[in-house]
Simulated assay, not measured.
Amino acid sequence: MDQLFLDIVQNERPFAWLYQFFLMVLVSMIPFAPIPVLAAYIASKHAFFPGFAINMLGTTLGSFLLFLLSKSLLRQVALKYLTKRQYLTKYLALIEKNGFLAVLLGRIIPVLPSAGINLIAGISNVNLGAFIAATFLGKLPIILAFSLAGHQIAAGNWDTVFIVALYGLALFLTGKKLMRKWSQ
């Protein structure tokens, strides 16, 4: 099993890109999954645009599927989880007020894991079109950055990787600051 997984992520099987796509779909549905690491690794195994497309489309489809699951099957579980965390109920109130903007900002500034945003948006009144548009636009900069980092690591260009790492750190710190503000 381990060898099969390695063959898939290292492009040593026919249609490995398709397996990588479905792996990104699956991983994007798991809270706290190492999406940045996997996105960089997948991008390092392809030319830039195909690696970026696998990552972007895979994570967007995974977000969409978890959103739909949250709307139907996971609604009670998500509500129970939300009521135990004050900052999540504040985010739910923000989503109820302006769904598109809340999802977009949640994607751009990583206050919550992507799966958390999907679950919260699913139990809210966010319309499907607004969710997909905000998800795609919000994921674009971060997936672009991680795909670029992976591609540059493969090329041995560590200057770009350093800049992308600084960008990721700035987003992380901004997210932590917002999370503290929402927790008060």
Rank of each mutant, 00 (worst) to 15 (best):
D2V: 12
Q3S: 13
Q3K: 14
L4M: 10
L4E: 13
I8M: 13
N11C: 12
F15N: 03
W17M: 00
W17I: 01
L18D: 01
L18R: 04
Y19V: 00
Y19L: 07
F21W: 14
F22W: 15
L23C: 04
M24W: 14
M29H: 08
M29T: 12
P31W: 14
A33L: 03
A33I: 00
A33Y: 11
V37F: 05
V37I: 11
A39D: 11
A39F: 10
Y41Q: 00
I42N: 09
I42K: 10
A43I: 00
A43H: 01
A47L: 15
F48I: 04
F48C: 06
F49M: 14
P50Q: 11
G51Y: 12
F52H: 08
N55A: 12
N55M: 05
L57Q: 06
L57V: 13
G58E: 13
G58A: 13
G58H: 12
T59G: 03
G62M: 14
F64T: 15
F67P: 11
F67D: 10
L69D: 08
S72G: 08
L73H: 11
L79Q: 11
K80A: 10
L82I: 09
L82Q: 06
L82S: 06
T83D: 10
K84Q: 12
R85T: 06
Q86V: 02
L88P: 01
L88K: 01
L88V: 02
T89W: 02
K90M: 02
Y91P: 01
Y91M: 13
K97W: 08
K97Q: 15
G99Y: 14
G99P: 07
G99N: 07
F100H: 02
A102T: 15
A102P: 05
L104W: 15
L105D: 05
R107W: 06
R107K: 15
I108W: 07
I109Q: 07
P110K: 10
L112Y: 14
P113W: 04
A115S: 13
A115G: 05
G116V: 14
I117V: 15
N118V: 01
N118T: 00
L119F: 03
G122C: 03
G122V: 02
I123Q: 03
I123N: 04
S124F: 09
S124W: 07
G129C: 04
F131Y: 15
I132K: 15
I132R: 10
A133F: 15
A134S: 10
A134R: 07
P141I: 06
P141V: 10
I142K: 00
I143G: 02
L144R: 00
A145P: 06
F146T: 06
F146G: 00
F146S: 01
S147H: 03
L148K: 07
L148Q: 06
A149I: 02
G150R: 01
G150T: 01
Q152S: 11
Q152I: 00
I153K: 00
A154P: 01
A155Q: 14
A155K: 11
G156P: 08
G156L: 07
G156I: 06
G156N: 12
T160P: 02
V161E: 09
I163C: 01
I163D: 01
V164P: 11
A165I: 14
Y167F: 15
Y167E: 07
A170W: 09
L171K: 07
F172S: 07
F172C: 08
T174P: 01
T174Q: 04
G175C: 08
K176P: 04
K177N: 11
L178M: 14
R180M: 05
R180K: 14
K181N: 03
K181H: 13
